[in-house]
Amino acid sequence: MTDLSVLLESRPRPAGRRFALQRLPVSAKVAGLVLLAYAAVAMLAPAIAPYPPNEIFVGSPFEPPSAAFLLGTDSLGRDVLSRTIYGSRTILLMGGAAAGLSASIGGLLGMFIGYRGGVLDEVAMRMLEIIMSIPSIIFALLIVGSLGASAPLVAVTVGLLSVPNVARVVRAATQSVASEDFITAARARGETSLSIVLRELLPNVTGTLIVEFSIRTGYSILFIGGLGFLGFGAQPPTADWGLMVNEGRGTIDASIWPVAAPAAGMAMLVTAVNLFTDGVNRLFGPAEQGGVR
């Protein structure tokens, strides 16, 4: 007879959600570390940036990388490294805010219509479909163009744009829970719809919400970057990656660094978010829902 204890204990499987992050695939773990690094840089920007981001002529224009200016300077003699560091703040704040907005509003909406069903659900779904059929970029340009571009407005607009997508996914997740008897039991106790949604449903769709938040973060970052590049995002002189690429692209012959630095920052950020999303999806996504109880 073999004693299994060794065999089995050498392959411990952490239980419950507390340890969920430990079960992420390696790529997602690495991506998570990269994201943490981004967050740290953004938070510590004032401490680690060598120069104030918007101060002009800290050096002469278009200086190549040197010990004083690690990534050179731009057309106004601003330090590219400092601007790139501060730019991470802008994008993370705006992207995070947009994703948070879409996940919370879309999540609530999705849970409500998924739970209530019936006519409300039919009507709400048709309306969401109509909104989703309008190309987002046109929608965003319309709003930002007419109300004037500013960072908070852009974040809110991009966030709202994702609400229908989140709502649809959360609605589907809710529907599979809403037919269960513990929801009926809550109705029988006379719980309000709000308390049923927040107390009974929400804990059962958190996995879906986490995945959606993650997906929406990646999407918002790209979208906000694009808007910035088009001049519809944060306004000069803000250190914004999209804006920086736009400003530097005319003078790319003089120096590539004012474009390359924010573009690289953006590329790595988006890749990290997407890898992380994949991992999270594998943990909490529909296929695994039974397994992560």
Partner: peptide, 10 residues
């Protein structure tokens, strides 16, 4: 399952 272990036996 994570919250369970086979301590002994086969």
């Amino acid at each position: 399952r994570g919250e369970r272990r086979l301590r002994a036996g086969s």
